[in-house]
Amino acid sequence: MTLATDTTRPRRMPQSLIAARNIIGFLLRSPTSAFGLFVLAVLILTAIFAPLLATHDPFLQDLQNPLQPPGDGHLFGTDELGRDIYSRLVYGSRISLMIIFLVSIVVGPIGLFVGAISGYFGGWWDTILMRVTDIFLSFPSLILSLAFVAALGPSLNNAIIAISLTAWPPIARLARAETLTFRSADYISAARLQGASSARIIWKSIVPMCLPSVLIRLTLNMATVILTAAGLGFLGLGAKPPTPEWGAMIATGRRYMIDHWWLVTFPGLAILSVSLAFNLLGDGLRDALDPKQMNKR
């Protein structure tokens, strides 16, 4: 005799998907967070579909139509070499997104690892790692990035490395503070009594608890990363012409900005919009991941 099974029962949604749905719903209910989420969605879609959205070849020079104002076949006008500014902005979104992605995957793990090790073990580990962190924090990020790029050589790849080397200390400080709070918790003591190694405790118990705060900090740091990358490009130490990087576009257009405002206005607005979006999204994530807010939901 076989027992009939109920195949009509709906499958339960995984907890991770439920949490992600709740967070996105919370962000969309806040106008400022929704604006940040919308701008970043536009940035990602623009980078993916850049060949479809661009109206011209971003590298094609038209020396017969330089410095044309917006309109007449060029939505944002042309630069000093007749290149379409709108198309260059569209392809420049790929560079900005690449910088954000590469810096995030480097800075997040380094800062989280240094902070967790320092906070969990304490003693000499804490003293040495935090003094190194303090050295990096004692310099403004842009100045320190300039020093690293000067040592490595001016290029986009070296600019990304330099930004990554200067952006991890705040993450490490935050992870250390979180670890100091969690390491004396009862469940950590129980794990020690059961014979769990320090590496397992850090990886299985400490790191997951630090991730929400680190994610929020990373999101807020991305505005600084974008501005630093644009600053390096403006100073000629980042992306090199004819690469359509927004900071480099402002650098090449500053000589003509008095009479041809569109050369720097539209790249500047792009940098402003993305930086503002990350700040607003970071504030929204901080509220969404707040335990008090989560309890209300």
Results as ranks from 00 to 15, higher is better:
residue 80 E to C: 02
residue 80 E to Q: 15
residue 80 E to K: 05
residue 82 G to P: 02
residue 82 G to W: 00
residue 82 G to Q: 00
residue 83 R to V: 06
residue 83 R to E: 04
residue 83 R to M: 11
residue 83 R to I: 08
residue 84 D to V: 13
residue 84 D to I: 14
residue 84 D to A: 12
residue 84 D to H: 13
residue 84 D to T: 13
residue 85 I to P: 11
residue 85 I to H: 08
residue 85 I to K: 03
residue 85 I to D: 05
residue 86 Y to W: 14
residue 86 Y to D: 03
residue 86 Y to I: 05
residue 87 S to Q: 09
residue 87 S to I: 11
residue 87 S to W: 11
residue 87 S to R: 10
residue 87 S to M: 10
residue 88 R to K: 07
residue 88 R to H: 07
residue 89 L to K: 01
residue 89 L to C: 11
residue 90 V to Q: 02
residue 90 V to N: 01
residue 90 V to L: 11
residue 91 Y to N: 04
residue 91 Y to C: 08
residue 92 G to A: 04
residue 92 G to C: 03
residue 93 S to A: 15
residue 94 R to H: 04
residue 94 R to P: 07
residue 94 R to Y: 00
residue 95 I to Q: 02
residue 96 S to G: 13
residue 96 S to K: 00
residue 96 S to A: 15
residue 97 L to T: 01
residue 97 L to M: 12
residue 97 L to Y: 00
residue 97 L to H: 01
residue 98 M to S: 10
residue 98 M to V: 11
residue 98 M to G: 05
residue 98 M to A: 08
residue 99 I to C: 07
residue 99 I to R: 04
residue 100 I to L: 14
residue 100 I to G: 04
residue 100 I to F: 09
residue 100 I to A: 12
residue 100 I to V: 14
residue 103 V to R: 00
residue 103 V to Q: 01
residue 103 V to E: 01
residue 104 S to P: 06
residue 104 S to N: 06
residue 105 I to Q: 08
residue 105 I to D: 07
residue 105 I to G: 06
residue 105 I to M: 09
residue 105 I to R: 03
residue 105 I to V: 15
residue 107 V to W: 05
residue 107 V to N: 10
residue 108 G to C: 12
residue 108 G to Q: 06
residue 108 G to Y: 13
residue 108 G to F: 14
residue 108 G to E: 05
residue 109 P to C: 09
residue 109 P to G: 12
residue 110 I to M: 08
residue 110 I to Y: 00
residue 110 I to L: 15
residue 111 G to E: 08
residue 111 G to L: 06
residue 111 G to M: 07
residue 112 L to A: 15
residue 112 L to K: 03
residue 113 F to S: 15
residue 113 F to M: 13
residue 113 F to K: 04
residue 113 F to N: 08
residue 113 F to P: 05
residue 115 G to S: 07
residue 115 G to E: 04
residue 115 G to I: 10
residue 115 G to P: 10
residue 116 A to P: 01
residue 116 A to C: 15
residue 116 A to W: 00
residue 117 I to D: 01
residue 118 S to E: 06
residue 118 S to I: 09
residue 118 S to G: 11
residue 118 S to N: 08
residue 118 S to D: 06
residue 119 G to S: 13
residue 121 F to D: 07
residue 121 F to W: 11
residue 121 F to R: 12
residue 121 F to C: 08
residue 121 F to M: 10
residue 121 F to L: 15
residue 122 G to A: 09
residue 122 G to F: 09
residue 122 G to R: 04
residue 125 W to F: 15
residue 125 W to I: 12
residue 126 D to S: 15
residue 126 D to Q: 14
residue 127 T to Y: 12
residue 127 T to N: 11
residue 128 I to Y: 01
residue 128 I to C: 05
residue 128 I to H: 01
residue 129 L to C: 10
residue 129 L to M: 13
residue 129 L to A: 11
residue 129 L to F: 14
residue 130 M to E: 11
residue 130 M to F: 08
residue 131 R to I: 05
residue 131 R to H: 06
residue 131 R to G: 05
